[in-house]
Computed example of a mutant assay.
Amino acid sequence: MPPSQPVSPICLLFTLALGQTLQFQKHDFLQFLGLDKVPSPHAFQPVPYIMKKIFQGQEAASSTGTPRDLCYVEELGVRGDKLRLLQDQGAFLFSKHLWQDGSCLQKHLYFNLSAIRGKEQLTLARLDLDLGPNSYYSLEPGLELALFLIQEPQMWRQPVPKPGKLFALQSVPRPQGTLHFNLLDVAKVWTQSPQENVGLFLEILVRGDSHAGAGFQREATCARLRQSLRASLLVVTLDPEHCPSASRKRRRAARHAPTAPHKTLCQRHQLFVSFRDLGWHRWIIAPKGFMANYCHGDCPFSLSTSVNSSNHAFMQALMHAADPQVPQAVCVPTKLSPISMLYQDNNDNIILQHYEDMVVDECGCG
């Protein structure tokens, strides 16, 4: 019995688009995307500007045929082929000491990194703290922001986890805008030793203010911060298996094949894959679909450049004429290009990933 051959993603999509939606085929394609099952997010999360910019840049490069290194995130200056925006799963903390010493709020920050697989290499982990939109109140007090690594998990009946090492201390002149913190070294430890990932402790304090009405402004500022504060972790990983090899780069740079002069000869045909038709529009943010295309047609004995045949295909055709047991050359993709996808997983995290060999650009006999 001959060994089974790996199924390419384009073949899987073609099968799905034709209506042959067997469960194992969907499962195989989801595994190719790095998912164990079809995500069912609770609600669509807003896509941050940086991920929109990267996605739109890749879309523009694909539409113009501009070469782009899919293993390098130019906008962030790091190597990587997958971006994740992990949502904070922690909670606000309340204790009788909360308002002492000018404390405004305390929060447990926690990010689930279990989706990052062992072969993925972390290249960026950036904590983003969004304090909310610009305020019209110019007299709002300044803040002091302290970020601690939690020393041990929060115990039962323990209102506040035990803070450990001070990670960052930053003055904030106004309670607005987004702050960024480099968590790469910490995230690497968390992925290698998941039991050490017990989160971060965030405390925001109001700096001393002597002008009239300071007490009221502090209370109003803290109330607004509790409503508007959003924390997320932007993670970039590099999967060596997904990075294009030199051979793939050469294949994508192959010469342009002239259009086949006859409809029956090997050539590219249009095939649009609609994620709505597959029922995946509930978790795929963008694109709504893409032109995957497919190859179909005859590879006659009199092979020529009209069907973009290789020397091997020509020799195979000669051997088939001499010995019918030798199979004929078949119409296959000779040049493919990638697509980018924005989607959400079951934890409502936003993922941006580039996928190789998803669009058939040229066909030939091989």
Rank of each mutant, 00 (worst) to 15 (best):
V7C: 05
I10H: 08
T15H: 09
A17K: 11
Q23T: 13
F24G: 14
L35T: 04
D36G: 15
P41Q: 09
F44D: 14
I50H: 13
S62K: 07
S62W: 12
G65N: 00
C71L: 00
D81V: 00
F92T: 04
F94K: 06
S103H: 00
L109C: 09
E120F: 00
Q121L: 10
G132M: 08
L139H: 13
L143I: 04
L149H: 01
Q151C: 02
P159V: 03
P159K: 11
P161C: 11
P163Q: 12
G164I: 04
G164M: 10
K165N: 12
A168G: 02
P173G: 10
H180E: 05
L184K: 10
L184P: 11
E196R: 10
L200K: 14
R207L: 15
Q217L: 15
R218G: 12
A231N: 05
L234E: 13
T237G: 08
L238W: 06
H242G: 09
R255P: 11
A260V: 07
D277L: 03
G279K: 00
G279Y: 07
I284S: 03
N293F: 14
D298L: 06
C299Q: 05
S302G: 09
S304E: 02
S306M: 01
N311K: 08
M319N: 09
P327K: 07
P338H: 08
N346R: 15
V359F: 03
